[in-house]
């Protein structure tokens, strides 16, 4: 059953976005990418020393995989920094997609939502296709949508924690209230069950990195994450039953063997 989705001008089949950081080696990263089926890979930019060669071999390897690249603005603390870095990313990676991250707190890496709104507006007006990394705040997400952003990426939990969805109620509300944008949970995913939960809520996709890159067998975990995304999506499309407070027998009670009418 084809279940493709449109992300700006690109049609995707996979609902997993995969980060490229923290793998033990480029070869293991490539195995994980292939096992995940991810069609979108995140990257970043960092200061480069002269004659270092930097990550050029790695970047060449990534290009050969022919995936859609989604550069991020990780490390930026102001809208001004993020807008400048987005322009640099567009030239380096040859894409107008940008995962807009602006850190507001060093302890939990919570995004600065005021700066995020400012940068989203500027970049959208300059033709960038913004993927806004935010918290699960409904009002902020609505404002991001109203600015023209088509992909909103609320966190599940702080980056790298692997805690899963800390506020499923708010995420469920986001999905119920925002029908006309792509919602992708980004950050905090630790297990395939978290991915399945995201997809069961009706989210369009999941972005993860640490849970795959730092586990003992990244390719195996990447495959598990892929299956979880498919399972969760199918569950969402199937129209799951509502929870009940009382038991209801699943086996028919008519004709129950050994049952006898008793007089009170």
């Amino acid at each position: 059953m084809p279940d493709s989705w449109q992300v700006y001008d690109v049609e995707l089949q996979s609902r997993l976005f995969l980060g490229t950081a923290q793998y033990p080696s480029p070869a293991i990263m490539q195995e994980a990418i292939e096992a995940s089926g991810a069609q979108v890979l995140t990257t970043s930019l960092r200061r480069q020393a002269p004659n270092s060669g930097g990550g050029q071999k790695w970047w060449q390897q990534l290009r050969e995989l022919s995936r859609q690249i989604l550069p991020n603005t990780a490390g930026c603390r102001t809208a001004k920094e993020a807008v400048t870095l987005a322009h640099m990313a567009r030239e380096l990676f040859q894409t107008d997609w940008i995962k807009l991250e602006i850190t507001g707190d060093d302890y939990n890496l919570q995004p600065n939502l005021l700066e995020l709104l400012s940068a989203t507006e500027q970049l959208h007006n300059e033709g960038f296709k913004v993927f806004a990394y935010t918290t699960e705040d409904l009002v902020i997400c609505k404002r991001i949508r109203d600015l023209g952003c088509q992909v909103i990426m609320p966190w599940g939990a702080p980056i790298g924690t692997g805690k899963g969805l800390l506020n499923p109620y708010a995420l469920k509300t986001l999905r119920e209230r925002l029908h006309d944008v792509n919602l992708v949970v980004d950050a905090g995913i630790g297990l395939p069950s978290h991915v399945a939960q995201v997809m069961e809520l009706g989210f369009d996709g999941v972005l993860l990195n640490t849970s795959v890159a730092r586990c003992d067998d990244p390719a195996k975990m990447a495959k598990a994450m892929h299956h979880a995304s498919v399972a969760g999506r199918l569950a969402y499309l199937s129209g799951a039953i509502s929870e009940r407070e009382t038991a209801v027998a699943s086996t028919p009670v008519i004709g129950t063997p050994f049952w006898q009418s008793k007089e009170n």
Binding site: L45, L92, I159
Partner: peptide, 10 residues
């Protein structure tokens, strides 16, 4: 001057 190159990212 900030001189940047491609790098891994999440």
């Amino acid at each position: 001057l900030d001189i940047l190159a491609a790098m891994f990212g999440g």
